[in-house]
Simulated assay, not measured.
Amino acid sequence: MMATRSPYGLGALAMLLTGRDLRILEDLERFRLLDTRLVQRLQFPSGPGGQHVSKSSATRTAVRVLTRLEGHGFIARVGRRVGGAGHGSSQTVWQLAASGERLLRARRGQDGRRRYVDPSTTFLAHTLDVARYAATLYETARTTGFEVLELQAEPESWRPFQAAHGGAITLKPDLYLVTADAESETHSFIEIDRDTEHLPAVLRKCRLYQQYRQSGAEQAARDLFPIVVWVTPDEGRARRIRAAIDGDQTLDPELFITATADGSLPVVAPYSSTQPKGGIS
């Protein structure tokens, strides 16, 4: 479906947007790609603590809102879908369109524009997995009472620093998280692993995290260094990464946790009452 061109200017269109509309645009800017189900989970929550009684009614409302935003040219459909649970419109993948990006930039007083291209299948699948992890964290926070104080996705999560030899390096976590309850905070770097990287590549990324810790840049800014959590698709992969880290004499094993998505939640939000459904290594 092609987005229709509106005869109204950007400022006039902005007047038609609700607060939730703007939050959807901001989510698309932050996560880069979201399918309809993810938009529903983030902005049209259902079940305990949610705004909708059922997931189906929440999804129908989300589809109507997304179709309206598409019609105004704020968002656009990506030219491919990713298989998995769910059918039809729930698997439609969305990204910001030019008008949506210009509106968000104008609200921040920024110039420039971002060039959008059709993503590769690998990039799309990984990007959606990162967003799914974030959606799960927000849902858990809503039902168990902790707060997500900060959630940075790429490229906001990136950390440029000077290596010991003087060269400039950029560490690129998938997510940076700060969660909290009334008494404490937890800071985490998240790597969403899809079991597509060979273990030597995983270890190289671990060494980069260790280099970044040794630089002192994060500690200077935050007074601490976050735990690094490798979130894996299954417990077997978590054990293999754990064994590789423990077997590398150059790494500090206490810096890293490997776990499934469910198993990682008590690490990144240890005040949650949710018990891990998967293993932690």
Results as ranks from 00 to 15, higher is better:
Ala97Thr: 03
Ile190Gly: 02
Val82Ala: 03
Arg239Leu: 06
Ala163Cys: 05
Thr232Glu: 08
Leu251Glu: 06
Leu265His: 05
Gly279Met: 05
His198Ala: 13
Glu150His: 14
Ser90Leu: 06
Leu208Glu: 13
Ser120Phe: 07
Arg237Pro: 08
Gln162Lys: 13
Gln95Lys: 15
Leu149Val: 10
Ala238Asp: 01
Gly216Glu: 08
Arg102Thr: 07
Asp129Ala: 14
Tyr8Pro: 03
Gln210Trp: 06
Gln43Arg: 15
Arg20Asp: 13
Ser54Gln: 06
Leu38Ile: 05
Asp181Phe: 07
Phe225Asp: 04
Ser120Val: 06
Gly88Phe: 05
Val267Asp: 01
Ala243Cys: 14
Phe44Asn: 06
Glu26Asn: 06
Gly236Ile: 13
Leu208Val: 07
Ala98Gln: 14
Leu66Glu: 02
Thr59Ser: 13
Ser215Met: 09
Gln162Ile: 13
Gly109Asp: 07
Ser184His: 15
Leu104Lys: 08
Ser188Leu: 02
Leu22Gln: 11
Glu147Phe: 11
Glu139Pro: 02
Arg108Cys: 08
Leu255Asp: 11
Arg37Glu: 12
Pro173Arg: 04
Ala259Glu: 02
Gly112Val: 10
Ser99Asp: 09
Arg102His: 15
Arg237Cys: 02
Thr18Gly: 14
Met1Gly: 12
Gly84Asp: 02
Val202Tyr: 07
Ala164Cys: 12
Leu38Tyr: 07
Lys277Phe: 05
Tyr271Ala: 08
Leu16Cys: 08
Ile280Cys: 00
Gly83Arg: 11
Ala97Asp: 13
Leu128Pro: 03
Met15Tyr: 02
Ser188Lys: 01
Ser89Phe: 12
Leu128Arg: 01
Gly216Ile: 02
Glu218His: 13
Thr143Cys: 05
Arg242Met: 09
Tyr138Ala: 06
Ala221Gly: 07
Leu255Trp: 09
Pro200Met: 10
Arg107Ser: 13
His87Leu: 12
Gly263Ser: 05
Ser157Phe: 09
His87Cys: 12
Ser281His: 15
Leu33Trp: 14
Arg222Tyr: 14
Gln40Ser: 10
Val231Met: 01
Asp195Ala: 14
Val130Pro: 00
Leu34Cys: 12
Glu185Gln: 15
Pro233Asn: 12
Thr260Phe: 00
Ala14Glu: 05
His187Leu: 11
Arg142Lys: 02
Thr170Met: 03
